[in-house]
Design a protein around this nucleic acid. Structure first.
Lengths: 113, 113
DNA sequence: TAAGCATATACGTGTCAAGGTATATATATG
DNA sequence: CATATATATACCTTGACACGTATATGCTTA
């Protein structure tokens, strides 16, 4: 029943909201429920997905469970972006060179479609 | 019919494969079809999603369409990761301090569950 | 032990997206 | 113009998932 890829986990808007909430500090299920205006079962189910995918872990505090972030899965996303970063910095360089040429000539700009 | 968020777009494994293929150079639909072993309609449909979300754009070359990457949507993913990067580097710092303390004492380690 | 709070889970339902097959559109070439 | 090639799209079916409601589980305190 685990969601296979980290990308599917963060595709869900409510799960991204939970992650963004937890980045500042840990929270209980009830706190998440109130701050994000989601039903309690919805929160619990998303937390289960996040937990099974390694995005969060929990501490037991009496009846509460305090959830907090774990970095690894998001680092995986970060790593996936690596080759694309190379791509877009190359792209930026090309743009800079282009703008630099523009700066020295009054040629009308060719627009792409 | 556009997919609402960039995260949903990259949640699909075949689309990630297409993006990874295009990072090295532009390709025609047929090239993508052959290299990724996907049916032609499947490729075209994923390319449509990618195009409408701004991940790719295309050039007409006779009967072919050459698709190439556009950086913006992936940069958006990159930007979304920013607060989490702060989180996990703080985490790393804490780990380093912890290991540093371990280095100077022989206390048994407390394991979390 | 009863009652109450916090969280997890089971089940049913509706929606939506992905893929297959068939077909349409556009371009090239004989 | 007929045929082949390249790509897009329509339609259908299937499966997955997100949510709501109801209920179970577990801990706490009177």
């Amino acid at each position: 029943m685990p969601v296979d890829s980290v990308f599917e986990v963060i595709a869900e808007p409510n799960r991204r909201a939970i992650l963004s909430l937890l980045v500042s500090s840990q929270r209980s299920v009830g706190e998440i429920e109130r701050q994000l205006r989601m039903s309690q079962p919805t929160v619990s189910k998303h937390l289960r997905v996040l937990r099974e995918a390694g995005f969060v872990e929990s501490n037991v505090d009496a009846q509460r469970r305090l959830y907090r972030l774990k970095p690894e899965p998001l680092q995986e996303v970060d790593a996936w972006l690596t080759p694309f970063r190379r791509f877009w910095s190359a792209h930026l360089d090309a743009l800079e060179r282009h703008l630099d040429r523009m700066d020295h000539s009054n040629e009308p700009k060719k627009e792409e479609h």
